[in-house]
Amino acid sequence: MSSLKLNPNFDIAAFLKEFWQQKPTLLKQLVEFDDPLSPNELAGLACEDEVESRLIRGSHNWMLQHGPFKESEFAQLPPDSWTLLVQGVDLFVQEFRDLKDLFQFIPKWRFEDVMASFATPGGGVGPHFDYYDVFLIQGRGERHWQLGQKCDTSNEITTDTGLQLLEHFALQQEFTLNKGDVLYVPPQYAHWGKAISPSFCYSVGFRAPSAAEMLEGFSDALIARSSPALRFTSSPDVMISDPHKIKDQDLKIAYSLVHGDLEDKDIFSKWFGSFMTTPKYPELFHLPEKRITATELQELLVVNKSKLHMNPASRLAYHENLEKKLLHFFVDGRVYSLSNSYSESISKLCKETSLFHELFCDPSTPDEIVNFILDMLHEGSLLLESDV
């Protein structure tokens, strides 16, 4: 169990009512948190092929470089005005997973990742805005943050440096963050951070898919499930007065053809849960060399004392359809449909993933649960101890 705790004076209900997705706020000394990595260790992560990283040099005329990097590149850096950013550090370091779990007052299926940044004096990423919520957690050192206007697609953006930076930044608030302070920035608010001293900042971000992304994804799913035999047929009138006119009846037929599945909320819920749990880094899922049976896995767990662990890159969620007495359990973009009588068990599994091991070893566990646990192992969502 992690010893990390939010400041007991932090009023979650008041924060959600007054600030969440509404306006920025500084949360002084929200969390007592020691940096899990040194600057050199973070640089080491940025040298790995499977890690997404960026190096930004300069304090006004920024230059962007994407990783992976070589150790020699860091040795050549100047003493100030650069920032190293490493995405998804929670996938590699337990302490960052503990950090993100502090924010479970926000639905966990919305969580994106933890990004760690180390900046030397003057270092930063420039004035910008995001389309998602972010908690900026200050580690060691000091960082000065400026907050600006609320932005939209009409704001001028420059991309000359490879970064999406604002042409115009209208300063409205500014704060200096020390270790343990957290700056919450809702979507579309301009912000600009600069390190005062060598410092760490940890960004906890959340998924916020656009309507266009969801329309594209859901329409693709509907196309995939549509039968090629389902075709448009025109209204059966024998005589037509104008061969160029599209009649209202024909429009109704065409509309009903494409509208049918759109009204099925169960189809949409299955797609949405799969969409929101699709892993950000699928390359971190390594499938076992061979598939094993439930009996073979039980022998490994009970006799050989192996352990099942959740892949840190996995994402879990579930949805209950009370009308149909169904529960859809979403794992890394897949959906397992079960009776909603299992809702309590699935809720516990999502909260305490060590229970996957216990449930599989329990002879009273229903076959439906045994089967999806075995499938999760075959898909790389669960790992055997020897694989961790």
Rank of each mutant, 00 (worst) to 15 (best):
1 M>N: 09
2 S>T: 15
4 L>S: 09
16 L>F: 08
18 E>S: 11
22 Q>D: 13
23 K>L: 00
30 L>S: 06
31 V>E: 03
32 E>T: 15
33 F>Q: 04
34 D>F: 06
36 P>R: 08
41 E>F: 06
49 D>Q: 12
49 D>V: 11
50 E>C: 01
54 R>T: 01
54 R>N: 04
54 R>L: 05
54 R>Y: 05
55 L>K: 11
56 I>K: 06
57 R>G: 11
58 G>L: 08
62 W>E: 01
64 L>C: 07
66 H>Q: 14
67 G>C: 07
68 P>I: 02
69 F>P: 01
72 S>Q: 11
73 E>R: 00
77 L>Y: 05
81 S>I: 09
85 L>P: 02
88 G>L: 03
91 L>Q: 15
101 D>S: 12
104 Q>E: 11
109 W>Y: 15
110 R>V: 00
112 E>P: 00
117 S>N: 05
119 A>R: 09
119 A>G: 08
122 G>M: 10
122 G>N: 10
126 G>I: 08
130 D>T: 01
132 Y>R: 00
133 D>A: 11
134 V>S: 06
137 I>R: 04
137 I>M: 08
140 R>F: 11
150 K>D: 05
154 S>Q: 15
154 S>W: 08
163 L>I: 04
166 L>K: 00
168 H>A: 06
170 A>V: 14
171 L>K: 07
184 Y>F: 14
186 P>N: 06
191 H>Q: 04
192 W>P: 05
201 C>K: 07
204 V>N: 09
205 G>V: 05
206 F>C: 02
209 P>W: 11
209 P>V: 00
210 S>R: 09
211 A>F: 14
212 A>D: 10
212 A>Q: 15
214 M>D: 09
216 E>L: 12
225 R>T: 12
226 S>H: 12
230 L>R: 10
231 R>W: 03
233 T>W: 00
237 D>W: 11
239 M>N: 14
248 D>A: 15
250 D>K: 04
255 Y>N: 12
257 L>Y: 00
257 L>T: 04
259 H>K: 14
259 H>S: 15
259 H>E: 13
260 G>S: 13
265 K>N: 14
272 F>R: 12
283 E>Q: 14
287 L>P: 01
287 L>E: 05
289 E>L: 10
289 E>Y: 01
291 R>H: 09
293 T>R: 01
294 A>N: 11
315 R>G: 00
318 Y>S: 13
320 E>P: 00
321 N>G: 05
324 K>H: 14
324 K>C: 02
328 H>C: 13
329 F>A: 09
333 G>N: 06
334 R>F: 12
336 Y>S: 04
337 S>H: 02
340 N>M: 12
344 E>W: 10
347 S>N: 12
347 S>Y: 01
354 S>C: 01
355 L>N: 08
357 H>P: 02
358 E>M: 08
361 C>D: 05
365 T>E: 02
368 E>Q: 08
372 F>T: 00
375 D>K: 14
375 D>F: 02
375 D>I: 02
378 H>N: 15
380 G>P: 07
381 S>M: 07
384 L>V: 07
386 S>T: 14
386 S>C: 05
